[in-house]
Design a protein around this nucleic acid. Structure first.
Lengths: 339, 339
DNA sequence: GAGAGGTATCGAAGCGCTTCGAGTGCAAGG
DNA sequence: CCTTGCACTCGAAGCGCTTCGATACCTCTC
């Protein structure tokens, strides 16, 4: 193992000089810098991670807490995680992966063990039990997802309320008056996940404003889509449009509608709030509002980087992405035949 | 921050005694141990991660290198990753997440920086460029996936060759004589991913033995399934069974067959080598061989743990899981009508 | 041309932890 | 009773790195 002392010896300077070349915290003459840098190259020196973390030093690691749940759509989580990893890596940081299972005790472990310089939490609930710890801590942090109280926190999310509103506007603009919402599994609402609840708020508020009748039903998974659809058509036979926020339900829904001879978008319109990929690859390409997973991951990473760079903003910052609606083949004007 | 010295002071012993209580490397009297342990509890002591990593010490971190690719099925990767994370966490280790993008230089970084005690690599290619580094290194390692040369390596994988063979056996047993294989994207074969190639070997060998005619076509994604199916039916109109090893293609294939009035399993049989979830939730529940993602992750984690515990096996160990075929609703006896 | 101020470098201390060698006290053995 | 060996504990050294003075030299300025 090559140490800093080896580099110093090779370059004919003291260890501290090498350290300052590396950190840039004191001025170094150009000639010395070059000599040291070439020694580093030549010996293939890499700082020892543990030693770097020692005094008040930064381990150059970001902790990322990822959910273990199976009721969230995994590819989106993954895309976020990889965007975070790529972004921080570009700045010389590594990612420590924690599972959501660990909850507050995971945050405490990071804190106590000085394992990481900053924390990024995914799958944040409206009233998340990890937040008090985060607020009490001096450690930079960012949330992906928005809790109810965002004071003194840094958050990144899609503006799901606006997304909900945008769905209603689009459908109302096409003449639809009866819209059904096929939502996430009831467990997702039960544990008060922000995005699901906010989307619903947006849908409801705008529906009321535009005089659209809205029926919302949670949907447990792909197997229960049929039952959900049946209930919708019984309770609201006049339904001509569906908003789906449940990755597992989109394709089964399209299949069922096809089987029932409800042409999309001829007879009924379908739109989704989902991953771009899901919408594009559906058997009927779906008009959708995409969850900007990659952007969110990158932005959260940048938030903690900025905090680490000393641009501490004690007030926090909420970065909400504007929803963008992409019209594809699954929505059209309301059909006036009775279904 | 509570340090080991604080604990020592509180317990009225020396720092080294506390250290020995923690590591168990020397005998400690019961009374002292109790006193120290209660001080640890009382003060909420957590060892400082950096300091622990210092001398020859173990940082208690496992590096996990995960692919960034989009042509692998993400949920399986995720399941493996989370199984690894959960398993090592139970033993007090943390996970450092690297992206596959980093390639060999990522491995080198771990090595040089002493960032992790061991490495687990996912998405291993037959002739992976990270392997020479691993072999040269003293650091414990495990691969998820099997390279061509496994000497001195620890690997975990499903026995994909056996899986391929098992598929053919099952279909031949039902009387099928013309089988089409819808495979992964051609890029997957091009970069010589072990699992795809081995499955194909198994399929081909057993087909030859059992007198089954086999046609293999790669499939780029869900959009190209139709073209692939057309080519199959043109080249081998007698085809009565399909083996799918491509998560994105399964559902579109079922939809297409339905549209062409090829009842499953009445007219044609379909089976898959895929995630359990995909098979169960398909519109026709699929006879399948599941990829035991969770088991693989856990086993790889256990392999490195064993190596860390000193059970170093310089010869390596290849843990191949026996494929298990679950019969569902998608395979049946060959129909003797002409399709 | 002496002090002020700046730049470039060094030595030493110390971060929290592990580990080695040494030391204490005690029981058993000669 | 003295040695031997064992069980237990301590002090000190040192891991690789950062950082804080201190030092040496150089360039201005009055």
């Amino acid at each position: 193992m090559v140490t800093l002392a080896d580099v110093a010896r090779h370059a004919g300077v003291s260890a501290s000089t090498v350290s300052y070349v590396l950190s840039g915290k004191r001025s170094i003459s150009a000639s010395t810098r070059e000599r040291v840098e070439s020694s580093i190259q030549h010996l293939g020196y890499h700082p020892h991670a543990g030693a770097r973390a020692l005094p008040g030093g930064r381990p150059r690691v970001i902790a990322l807490m990822m959910p273990l749940r199976t009721d969230v759509y995994v590819p989106v989580m993954m895309e976020i995680a990889l965007a975070v990893a790529t972004t921080v890596r570009a700045r010389g940081y590594d990612i420590l992966l924690l599972t959501g299972e660990e909850g507050p005790s995971g945050v405490r472990r990071i804190e106590r063990g000085a394992l990481a310089d900053a924390v990024i939490l995914m799958d944040v609930e409206l009233d998340d039990d990890r937040l008090p710890l985060l607020r009490a801590s001096a450690r930079p942090a960012a949330l992906i997802g928005m809790p109810a109280d965002t004071s003194r926190l840094h958050c990144v999310d899609l503006d799901f309320a606006a997304a909900g509103a945008l769905c209603v506007e689009h459908l109302a603009g096409l003449g639809h008056r009866d819209v059904a919402v096929i939502g996430e599994a009831s467990a997702v609402y039960a544990r008060r996940t922000g995005f699901a609840e906010r989307t619903l708020d947006g849908l409801r508020t705008r529906s009321r404003e535009l005089g659209v009748r809205l029926l919302h039903l949670p949907c447990e998974g792909s197997r229960t889509v049929a039952a959900t659809l049946t209930r919708i058509l019984e309770q609201r036979p006049a339904t001509t449009a569906f908003v789906v926020q449940n990755e597992a339900a989109t394709e089964p829904l399209l299949t069922l509608l096809r089987r029932q001879r409800l042409a999309v978008p001829g007879k009924v319109s379908v739109m989704a709030v989902c991953a771009e990929q899901t919408a594009v690859h559906a058997s009927v390409p779906l008009t959708s509002i995409a969850v900007p997973a990659q952007k969110m991951g990158r932005r959260a990473a940048e938030q903690v980087m900025a905090q680490l760079a000393g641009e501490r903003n004690a007030e926090g910052e909420v970065a909400l992405f504007e929803p963008e609606l992409t019209v594809r083949n699954s929505t059209g004007p309301r059909s006036h035949e009775t279904s």
